[in-house]
Write a protein that binds this DNA or RNA. Sequence first.
DNA 1: GAGGCTAGGCGTACGGTGTACACCTGTCAA
DNA 2: TTGACAGGTGTACACCGTACGCCTAGCCTC
Lengths: 226, 226
Amino acid sequence: MSAQGETRRAPLDRARVLAAAVAAADRSGLDALSMRSLAAELGVVPMALYKHVADKDDLVGGMVDTVIAGYDPADAVGGPAEVRARIRSARAGLLAHPWLRTAIESRTRRTPAVLAHMDAVAGAFLRGGYSADLTHHAMHALGHRIWGFSPEAFEEPPAEPPSPAEREAMLRTMAERFPHITAIAMDTAARTPSGTCEPEGEFDFTLDLLLDAFERLHAAGWTSSA
Amino acid sequence: MSAQGETRRAPLDRARVLAAAVAAADRSGLDALSMRSLAAELGVVPMALYKHVADKDDLVGGMVDTVIAGYDPADAVGGPAEVRARIRSARAGLLAHPWLRTAIESRTRRTPAVLAHMDAVAGAFLRGGYSADLTHHAMHALGHRIWGFSPEAFEEPPAEPPSPAEREAMLRTMAERFPHITAIAMDTAARTPSGTCEPEGEFDFTLDLLLDAFERLHAAGWTSSA
DNA sequence: GAGGCTAGGCGTACGGTGTACACCTGTCAA
DNA sequence: TTGACAGGTGTACACCGTACGCCTAGCCTC
């Protein structure tokens, strides 16, 4: 009564575990992802996961790896255009998986897909004729942006709007104690349609700014020894 | 027998708690900092901390705030020079407190010192004659670099060196599967004195690159609507 | 002085976490 | 037939953040 009784669950493997973890994190965030909850979701006891994953760190590393491995393979045209394409692909991944930023930030091991993405971006610069020296510096300058990051520290979660009176008071003290950022915020509020920051616009702006700067250095025959 | 017997510990206050937490994190890292360990260090029961701190998140937020509040007050000369000075001060803080990067990345509330630092950097741009529009974009482009960050995801911890044979094998497979980053690594190894990346050099390079780019936009009368 | 308020510290307890370790069971190769 | 072994189980441990109630010393007011 083994093969026919209750339909026997196909045995787990690493890929299934990682896929389930990604799905769970997509639904409820990385904090809510525990070995126990993941195991429950897979209809398995927590310790069973450890047959497929060394520990939780390995699990998260694997999740990051699988997502990154799914990035679009861009045409190897070389130069800024290819870099842009690859980075935009990374950014799409980041937007699709809100937990990915935190997960990447905590990574310390370079898994194959991570190395592959870095290699692809570096390759784009090199194929575009950039020197190894300049490419190296460009990669550092792009920094986390090669993973599609935009800076999100100190982003306040959406709060329920305060009463008009409170809002007025807060605005006044802000203007008094932090006049410059208040001025900037007022400026954007007045000038842009949405009235707030537009992350995608800012991301593209910065990416273009950097790629332009690289192009200029490349054209000038820049070397780091200068 | 109250005032004279055993020397009565001065009552805790928020500042003392935060200072002790910063010291503990400096010594043993943020992961090792638990309410229990911190309480023990202060000679107090864990729950006593909650009279001075709302919860652990508030504790970490307070730690970040106190460190940032200690940044050098730069001369308000305005322009890129002041921006550079303020960012270098932030970077010094980051180098002095290894846990600070992680702590900042996880913050979601803008405490006063955080707002003050952001305001100071924005003020430097504005005093330098930059428009609110450009300043806003520049702040976004600097991103986490205004906190002195350099990108550190996927930085491998120092491992004990592998045997020459292993090293040889690893290097070959790296060169085969990830030729571009391998080429870059070899190039740096050959060209630089240390043979590895120099974080401070890279940080300064990028900062200068960005500040230069901003100056160019400023000189050209850039606006975001263009 | 007497009474009460309150800030600060204590003790206990709960539900959660990651994971070490020993065990069982089905499958397949020798 | 027998053994190894991959995969799943169950129990247990140490640790975490923190809710809740209590106790005590100092101070303010009457």
